[in-house]
């Protein structure tokens, strides 16, 4: 059956950028060729390390966007203007460039088909990235867990994976809900405003369905969603959270 659970130590590996896909003006998906990659679980992240010519190194964590089933490893990175790493990844990196990383990392914010559903995925901004890996995994694995993904964005122009989400939202058992916290374009049919208990009560699962919830985004959003879900009667141990902050730069 399962081989011994002891794993080797994580080592840094060189990958090559195959493609850099512009998701929005601030967000790119990096498609990587990673010959030493050992596979991952949906929701995990990697550490990226940049080394300057003088030896100075800087390291940041980025979530994996691709499903374990995909051939390439895909990371989606949002540029933080005062960041040390993300401006390079978003603006400078070109196909053919090498990128040093280690992973997969993290065993808590991860979903396997054996964990079942229903699933509530709640993301704020680029917090959607690990949720996208989970959603893509659910679809690629042919799993039938019912999924609702609630994504919060400032404006419609900030939506990443928009076309793919629209397509996935037409699949049986998959519902995609966007909410915009600032401006909404004319004719916007999605939600408006920040995610709160009322919105979660409207679009989420009833507590008696005992969904497994994954919440990822800035601390404020994560706290609001986790608190709201508990207030609606969801068991705290069924709610998994991942916060990101400016160190993600």
């Amino acid at each position: 059956m399962a081989r011994a659970a002891v794993r080797g130590r994580l080592t840094w590996q060189l990958t090559e950028v195959v493609e850099s896909i512009e998701e929005t003006p601030r967000v790119k998906s990096l498609v990587l060729r990673a010959p030493e990659w050992s596979g991952h679980r949906a929701g995990q992240h990697v550490d990226i390390r940049l080394t300057a010519e003088d030896g100075y190194q800087v390291q940041r964590s980025y979530s994996i966007a691709s499903a374990p089933e995909e051939q390439s490893l895909v990371l989606t990175v949002e540029r933080l203007d005062d960041g040390e790493v993300s401006p390079y990844l978003v603006d400078e990196l070109r196909p053919g460039d090498q990128l040093e990383l280690r992973g997969p990392i993290g065993g808590y914010f991860a979903w396997d088909t054996s964990a079942g559903g229903p699933l509530l995925l709640v993301g704020g901004g680029s917090g959607i990235v690990p949720l996208m890996s989970i959603l893509r995994h659910r679809v690629a694995a042919g799993n039938n867990a019912d999924v609702r993904l609630l994504a919060s964005w400032r404006t419609a122009g900030d939506i990443i994976y928009g076309a793919e989400l629209e397509r996935l939202g037409r699949l049986d058992g998959v519902e995609i809900i966007h909410t915009l916290t600032r401006d909404a374009p004319a004719g916007w049919t999605g939600r408006r405003g920040r995610i709160d208990e009322a919105m979660l009560g409207d679009v989420g699962w009833a507590a008696k369905a005992a969904p497994l919830s994954f919440v990822c985004g800035p601390t404020g959003l994560v706290e609001a969603v986790a608190t709201g879900l508990v207030a609606l009667g969801h068991a705290p141990e069924r709610i998994r959270t991942e916060r990101f902050g400016p160190t993600g730069g």
Binding site: D47, I105, Y108
Partner: peptide, 22 residues
Amino acid sequence: DAELVLDGNALAGVFSELFLQE
């Protein structure tokens, strides 16, 4: 500032340098 708070997921990398279990 609440926005400067991360969570324990951010420790997974450094833990992996020291421990075999997650």
